[in-house]
């Protein structure tokens, strides 16, 4: 039994969950009514809002994995942090691509320095720097330690950024429809299924990336063993 066997189970389970929820989600998005004010472009929100969940989940898990690594010094927690950061950056890229497309159609401009836009962009830059730090640090143990410290500092700065941007007058112009419950008939289901699909996609990609991490460390271990035997 290899270290990747339990991951395989999760991989199959998340793949099935992803396939089912994605199919249902696509059907409900297709069936959802066209927004009277915004037109068909409103449907991009059925992608945009759910992927935000994946982005934030990724960044939270990165800091959690980093913290657990510093505490327990077990390599698997570092693998979790690295995997979550990569998947989180992917989801955050989707957020930053879909958002402006919708904004151009609805607000008339690609970007505003709105509170949440700025926060998300900064968070994105923090985690891109996090990935660069990992790839520019030699030695997996050192990279794990450095990355963990950076991920925790990155998480600590989120509330500070929130106050800072609020102070700088970055009023939020973001719609708050979900919270206010002002969604039209037939719009609730695609949002809910979108969330489910995003979580399933996140889980699936995370598990696959964890498997890559586990295989890599297995390869490194075998290479080190072979090297020792030769010497």
């Amino acid at each position: 039994m290899t270290a990747t066997t339990p991951l395989r189970t999760w991989q199959h389970a998340s793949a099935v969950a992803l396939a089912v929820s994605a199919a249902l989600w696509a059907f409900f998005v297709w069936r959802a009514p066209i927004d009277a004010m915004q037109g068909p472009i409103q449907k991009i929100l059925y992608v945009h809002v759910p992927v935000v969940l994946g982005a934030y989940l990724g960044f939270f898990l990165t800091a959690l994995g980093g913290g657990l690594y510093l505490w327990r010094r077990e390599e698997r927690w570092d693998r979790l942090a690295a995997a979550a950061a990569e998947v989180g950056v992917l989801f955050c890229t989707l957020v930053l691509v879909t958002g402006p497309i919708w904004a151009k159609g609805t607000w008339g401009r690609w970007w505003t320095w709105d509170l949440r836009l700025t926060l998300t962009l900064l968070l994105y830059l923090v985690y891109v720097s996090y990935l660069l730090l990992r790839s520019f640090t030699e030695g997996s143990e050192r990279a794990a330690r450095f990355a963990a410290v950076y991920a925790i500092a990155g998480l600590a700065v989120i509330p500070l950024n929130y106050f800072a941007i609020d102070l700088a007058g970055g009023r939020t112009v973001h719609p708050e429809n979900l919270g206010r419950g002002s969604l039209g008939a037939g719009m609730r289901a695609p949002f809910a299924l979108g969330m489910l699909t995003a979580v399933a996609a996140f889980a699936h990609l995370l598990v696959r990336r964890l498997e890559v991490g586990a295989l890599r460390s297995e390869r490194d271990r075998r290479e080190a063993e072979a090297f020792r035997e030769e010497a």
Binding site: V126, F136, T137, E138, G154, L160, N161, A164, I165, L167
Partner: peptide
């Protein structure tokens, strides 16, 4: 202290530092 132990250390420090410096700079 982190950047000095990485490759491209002169580039690494601003990349790590500036995104986290926003609250200080804005304030």
């Amino acid at each position: 202290a982190i950047a000095v132990r990485t490759q491209y250390r002169e580039v690494m420090l601003p990349l790590l530092l500036l995104p986290l410096l926003v609250p200080v700079l804005l304030g």
